[in-house]
Simulated assay, not measured.
Amino acid sequence: MSENRPVATAVGRLLWPERTRVTELDRKLAVTRIEHDRAEGRCEDAEVRLARVRVATTHAELDSAVSGRSGSTVPPILEAAPRVGLAVWVVVSLVNVVVYLTLGMVSGQWDGPWVLWPVLGGGLLVLGLWSTRERDRRMRLGD
Score class of each variant (00 low, 15 high):
10 A>H: 00
12 G>A: 02
12 G>V: 05
16 W>D: 10
16 W>V: 03
17 P>I: 04
19 R>L: 09
20 T>Y: 00
21 R>L: 01
22 V>E: 09
25 L>Y: 06
25 L>A: 14
27 R>F: 07
29 L>G: 14
30 A>S: 15
31 V>F: 15
31 V>E: 15
33 R>D: 15
34 I>E: 02
35 E>K: 12
36 H>V: 12
36 H>W: 08
36 H>E: 15
38 R>A: 11
38 R>D: 04
38 R>Q: 08
39 A>V: 05
40 E>P: 00
41 G>F: 04
42 R>F: 06
42 R>T: 09
42 R>D: 11
43 C>M: 07
43 C>R: 07
45 D>V: 04
46 A>N: 01
46 A>W: 01
48 V>L: 13
51 A>K: 14
51 A>H: 11
53 V>E: 06
56 A>E: 06
57 T>D: 11
60 A>P: 04
60 A>T: 08
61 E>S: 10
61 E>N: 14
61 E>Y: 04
63 D>Y: 12
63 D>C: 13
65 A>F: 08
65 A>S: 10
65 A>H: 04
66 V>A: 06
70 S>I: 07
72 S>P: 11
72 S>E: 14
72 S>M: 12
73 T>E: 13
74 V>L: 11
74 V>K: 10
78 L>Y: 06
79 E>V: 13
80 A>F: 15
80 A>E: 15
83 R>V: 15
83 R>K: 15
86 L>E: 10
86 L>Y: 07
86 L>Q: 11
88 V>W: 02
89 W>D: 11
89 W>L: 04
90 V>M: 09
92 V>G: 02
93 S>A: 12
93 S>Y: 00
93 S>N: 06
94 L>W: 05
94 L>K: 02
95 V>E: 12
96 N>K: 05
101 L>S: 11
106 V>K: 06
106 V>T: 13
106 V>D: 03
107 S>A: 03
107 S>R: 07
109 Q>F: 10
109 Q>K: 13
111 D>G: 14
112 G>F: 01
113 P>H: 09
114 W>G: 08
117 W>F: 12
119 V>C: 08
120 L>V: 15
121 G>P: 03
122 G>P: 07
122 G>T: 00
125 L>Y: 12
125 L>C: 10
126 V>N: 01
127 L>I: 05
128 G>M: 01
128 G>W: 01
128 G>N: 02
129 L>T: 02
129 L>W: 05
130 W>D: 12
133 R>P: 08
134 E>F: 05
135 R>F: 09
137 R>P: 13
137 R>W: 15
139 M>Y: 03
139 M>S: 14
139 M>V: 12
141 L>I: 01
141 L>Y: 06
142 G>T: 01
142 G>Q: 00
142 G>V: 01
